[in-house]
Design a protein around this nucleic acid. Structure first.
Lengths: 123, 123
DNA sequence: CTAAAAGCTCACATCGATGTCAGAGGCAAG
DNA sequence: CTTGCCTCTGACATCGATGTGAGCTTTTAG
C-alpha cells in the first residue's frame, strides 16, 4: 500500500510516517518513481511505534529496542535498556495514579459541597 | 524564605519557580528591593504544581484547576474540567500499562532465550 | 569595606514530534 | 490531453517547560 492508505488505516499523519522512516523506525520499498510502498504488516508496526511513543520512549530508544520487541530476543545490554524503560514507565504510572487520586479526592469533595449548596466563592 | 531556598527544598530550579510565578501558579511577596519571599507553605504548593505537570497538565490547566485542588471546592464547569483531566490521566495510565506489559513480555521471552543459550543474532 | 553569593530582568536557545507550505512529479479517470 | 488527487523533497514553524548568559543590584560573610 502507499503512504496515504497507511496513514488513514493507522490514523497517523503522512508527515509522521515519513519522519518514522527518517528515524529508521519504519522501512519502505520504493517504486521506480520514488513512491513509498508498504506491506500490510506495516500497519501493526506503526501501531507498535505509536504505542512506544505514547509510553514516552524517544525515537532513539525505539530504534534500538524495536527489533527486540519484534523478535522477542535481545542481547544482555538491550535487556538492561528494556528493563530500564519498563521501570521508567512503571514509575510514571505511579505518578499518574497519584495525580488521578488527588483529582478524585477533589472531585468527590467538590461534588459533595455542591450537593450541600456550597460552591467556590461561597464560605 | 527566598527563592534559592525554595528551589533547593523542592528540587525545582530557580528558573522554573520564576516561570511558575509568571504563569500565575505561585505567588510571592516582594521585599522592598524586589526579592521574592515565600511562606513555608510554598514548598507543598510547588510539589503540587510539579505533580500536576508530571501528570501532563499544561500551565493553563493548572492555573484554572489549582485553586479548586487547594480549596476542595469547584463550580460545575470546573468540575467538568477536573473530570476531563482525570479521565485523560486514566487513559494515559492504560496506555502506559499496555506498553509496560508489552515490554514485560519481551523481557521474559528474551531472558528465557538467553538462558537457553540463544541470542539476538542466533537462529 | 570588600568580595562572594544570591537575586533581578530580559532575552535568546533547546529539544522533538508534528504541522505546514512551496514547487515539482506521478498516476488514474474523463 | 487535462484535471485532480497523491506523493516527493526540503525547509521553516510550533509549542512549552526549562537552560543559559549578560548586566546589574542586594545581601551576606569575612
Amino acid at each position: 500500500m502507499r503512504i496515504g492508505e497507511l496513514a488513514t488505516s493507522t490514523g497517523i499523519s503522512v508527515r509522521s510516517l515519513r519522519y518514522y522512516e527518517e528515524q529508521d523506525l519504519l522501512a519502505s520499498r520504493r517504486s521506480p518513481s520514488g513512491q513509498r510502498h508498504y506491506p500490510a504488516s506495516a500497519v501493526d508496526r506503526v501501531r507498535l511505534i505509536q504505542q512506544l511513543y505514547a509510553a514516552g520512549l524517544s525515537s532513539t530508544s525505539i530504534r534500538e529496542l524495536l527489533p527486540c520487541v519484534v523478535d522477542g530476543e535481545a542481547t544482555p545490554e538491550l535487556l538492561v535498556r528494556l528493563a530500564a524503560e519498563r521501570d521508567r514507565i512503571e514509575g510514571k504510572i505511579g505518578d499518574l495514579a497519584a495525580a488521578r487520586d488527588r483529582l478524585d479526592t477533589v472531585i468527590t469533595h467538590a461534588t459533595t459541597n455542591l450537593r450541600t449548596g456550597r460552591h467556590c466563592r461561597a464560605g
